[in-house]
């Protein structure tokens, strides 16, 4: 038997100290950093990144749907970097797609668009793209603090038949492999994004559904408050990473 302060235990303490002093740079690491050079090149080249087709579509929609009557594209700069936000009218948090839906339905009196349909994705990706390169600066509204805490609780809660929490993969095992995929830290700084597996553009909620189904749990209903709480926590967790929209992911 090893004495608690000698042998492996001491070695482990020394190792921990070494990691603390020389270890990996602190701070969040975008999923971009761990992709192959080919995929990184694809994301960075606006003529090879298929997400840019949807940004062009969104730019046209922004005109066609009359958003320009009240907003300019420049006024959308920085918006995505501080969402989700607190919406006084509904006395609760709202994500970017929810805000766009609110403008369409309440300010323009239009029929709702499907949340993950082509047009809503195009509008969202166009608006979010205006913040590309800006650091995530989560909404300072004190009423968001409660929402973030709710999100953190959901992030740490074990779920599904596999009984795994988000954190067990994205905090404890980030950088390791799950079958063929590298487990990223799970930051949401590039959404909506183009995913090769989807062969298309998809929302953060679609990504989160994939992760929930992956552990064989029932995903929340589309647009559910839980997603917005998770998103609010993810934004805090990724504070300082820059918006990459439209990112490319495997």
């Amino acid at each position: 038997m090893n004495h608690p302060w000698t042998g492996p235990r001491l070695a482990r303490v020394a190792l921990l100290l070494a990691v603390a002093v020389f270890g990996p740079a602190a701070g969040p690491r975008s999923g971009f950093e761990t992709m192959s050079p080919e995929l990184r090149a694809m994301q960075q080249d606006d003529l090879a990144n298929p997400g840019m087709l949807h940004v062009a579509e969104g730019e046209a929609q922004f005109q066609q749907q009359g958003c320009t009557a009240c907003h300019s594209a420049e006024a959308m700069q920085g918006v995505a970097a501080r969402y989700p936000a607190f919406d006084a009218a509904r006395d609760g948090p709202i994500d970017l797609a929810g805000r766009i839906a609110q403008c369409r339905e309440e300010r323009q009196g239009r029929a709702p668009l499907p949340r993950e349909g082509k047009e809503m994705l195009a509008l969202s990706v166009f608006v979010a793209h205006q913040s590309r390169g800006l650091p995530l600066t989560p909404n300072p509204d004190p009423r968001m603090e409660f929402v973030r805490r709710q999100g953190e609780a959901l992030f740490r809660e074990r779920r599904g038949q596999l009984n795994l929490s988000c954190g067990q993969c994205h905090d404890d095992n980030a950088g390791r492999r799950l079958a063929g995929s590298l487990i990223p830290e799970g930051h949401a700084n590039g959404y909506p994004l183009y995913r090769l597996e989807w062969q298309g553009l998809g929302s953060l909620q679609r990504r989160l559904r994939n992760c929930m189904v992956g552990v064989r749990s029932e995903p929340f209903a589309p647009g559910a408050a839980e997603y917005i709480a998770l998103e609010a926590f993810l934004a805090e967790r990724a504070r300082g990473l820059v918006v990459e929209t439209p990112a490319v992911r495997p």
Binding site: L47, A48, P50, L53, Q199
Partner: peptide, 9 residues
């Protein structure tokens, strides 16, 4: 020349 077109394939 570089070309990209939207298509489901």
């Amino acid at each position: 020349i570089r070309t990209l077109i939207q298509h489901p394939m």
